[in-house]
Simulated assay, not measured.
Amino acid sequence: MKLADRLRVALAAADRDHPVLLTGDFRDEDPAVAAYPAAVLVAVTDGPQPGVILTRRTETLRTHAGQVAFPGGRIDADEDAIAAALREAQEEIGLDPNRVEVIGTADRYRTVTGFEVTPVLSVVPPGLDLTPHEAEVAEVFEVPLSFLLDEANHKEGSLEWQGRERWYFEIHWEGRRIWGATAAMVVNLSRRLRWTA
């Protein structure tokens, strides 16, 4: 099955029989609390060894400085999640929206910083010449999809934050720590793909 088709099948899989999908940074999260809508682009390179494009944020940003993240940000009032993810990816890493095959939106994830993030799953050609926005992105890199999806690489931890216990996943790859919301969205995608394997 082609990569794009396998991803489409994974997104279409019903989750009612799979209660292991992650929804937020707190296990006792109140879904009634309002959150800012945001979107990220999960761009999978369609090569012999598919990879996922990630960024490392600059150390000068007010929030999440130095963290690994998908390209993305807030959804503006006049756009949907797909439009926002494509716009942010173009702004942050110079990814031409015309080179992106959008597969669909994946499971939303709520962050401790007050965002409800919609991952937009997509396929892009391998070897694209990407240019990081120097004020926001310190580095653009690719992690093999097979590594990210391997459950053995998903490490779970917890810490106390603002008086509450916070659970998170982290994935380590070549000296980089992928954790928090980014890792959780990867874990959700991994679980969906396992259901459709």
Score class of each variant (00 low, 15 high):
K2E: 15
A4H: 13
D5L: 13
L7P: 05
V9D: 04
L11M: 07
A13M: 11
A13P: 02
D15P: 02
R16P: 11
R16S: 14
L21F: 14
L21R: 11
L22M: 12
L22H: 04
L22A: 02
T23C: 05
G24P: 00
G24K: 00
R27F: 09
R27W: 13
D28R: 07
D28Y: 07
E29W: 04
D30H: 11
A32H: 10
A32K: 13
V33R: 14
A35K: 03
Y36L: 14
Y36F: 15
P37M: 08
A39Q: 01
L41G: 01
A43D: 09
A43T: 10
T45N: 02
D46L: 05
P48I: 14
P48N: 14
P48T: 14
L54E: 07
T55A: 06
R56V: 09
L61T: 14
L61C: 02
L61Q: 09
R62D: 11
T63L: 00
Q67A: 15
Q67D: 14
Q67E: 15
A69H: 11
F70S: 01
F70I: 06
P71D: 10
R74L: 15
I75M: 01
D76Q: 13
D80W: 04
A81K: 00
A85S: 11
L86D: 05
E88I: 05
E91A: 15
I93N: 03
I93K: 06
R99W: 11
R99C: 07
V100C: 03
T105Q: 10
D107P: 02
D107A: 15
Y109S: 06
R110G: 01
E116Q: 10
V120W: 03
S122M: 08
S122G: 08
S122T: 06
V123E: 04
G127Y: 10
L130F: 10
L130C: 08
T131K: 11
H133A: 11
E134G: 00
A135V: 07
E136N: 07
A138N: 04
V140H: 05
V140P: 01
E142W: 11
S146R: 03
L149V: 00
L149N: 06
D150W: 01
A152N: 10
N153Y: 09
N153D: 14
H154E: 07
G157T: 13
L159Y: 10
Q162M: 15
R164M: 07
E165I: 10
R166W: 08
Y168H: 13
F169R: 08
I171M: 04
H172A: 13
A181F: 01
T182Y: 00
T182S: 06
A183R: 02
A184W: 08
V187S: 03
L189K: 03
L189M: 09
S190T: 10
L193K: 02
L193H: 05
A197Y: 03
